[in-house]
Amino acid sequence: MSAYEAIILTIITASTPLLLAAIGELVVERSGVLNLGIEGMMVMGAVTGFAASYVTGSPWLGVLAAVLAGVATSMLFGLLTQTLMTNQVATGLAITLLGLGLSGLIGSGFVGLPGVKLTSVSITGLTDLPYVGRLVFDQDPLVYLSVILTLGVAYILKHTRVGLIIRAVGQNHHSAHALGYRVVTVRYACIAFGGATSGLAGAYLSLVYTPQWIENMTAGRGWIALALVVFSTWLPARLAAGAYLFGGVWILGLYAQGMGIGIPAQLLSSLPYVATILALVIISTNRRLSVINTPASLGQGFVPDR
């Protein structure tokens, strides 16, 4: 494998968890809900994914468990914000704090154990294509899934009735309710989808990226995913571009450290966080774009009159 292929491969690996978590959050926010708990759902996915695959020996059962854990955590968020009308920002923070704690507790017995790696799927014959062969046709299944999910979300939001309803609910929940749409149900469904993809993102970390359980192994990726959604102005294509860009920055820092070019390692490690802030500033300069695409009822609870 050439150095260029290796770098691109690691970039894809670093970007995939961001893309997975962010594409779910994009749908959640399009429906008008701000779930700041991605970090918590992700880390819950990571630990349950690792635990389940370690116990059963099957990485696929691990993935399934991670998805379920993500959905379960997101439903807790849904229960509070959609049924009990709590503040979404505070509840998202609670999810993150709880998730980090609970995952540590669950994972305390798994620290240092060898993990089960999800193996790549190579498509025979095509992997030998020059330049792109191994990059496109020799990836792990979750990479393909992340791409399929992104394309699917883009298509559904833009071209289907389900997508239209999600956008409508996110823009004006009073109108959607008046037209007879079940605002809360739609939002629950979107929150569950967001939980599922966050769980997947967590599973990617503990089953593919570094197949083991490390406490707080999400390292702020959930928050970066949130920033990516803002950066994308709620458009899936921009989201994917942003995710790969960020994966690139992440890997750049690691490579630079490895080469020992005399810049303190900590400075390079902080690159993704600095880049996130810069990206948010850059995107905010085009305020019109952000304002028009922003789901107008983002973060507001909805209580119907009865």
């Binding site: 009735r161 239209l164 309803i165 956008r167 409508a168 823009q171 004006n172 009073h174 109108s175 959607a176 008046a178 037209l179 749409y181 028009i292 695409n293 107008a296």
Partner: peptide, 20 residues
């Protein structure tokens, strides 16, 4: 026809009608 319209500002006329 509501007094406070049940419309979605960032959607097109056709999308608004289709929703109903």
């Amino acid at each position: 026809v509501f007094q406070h319209f049940s419309l979605f500002e960032a959607l097109t006329v056709a999308e608004n009608i289709s929703l109903a």
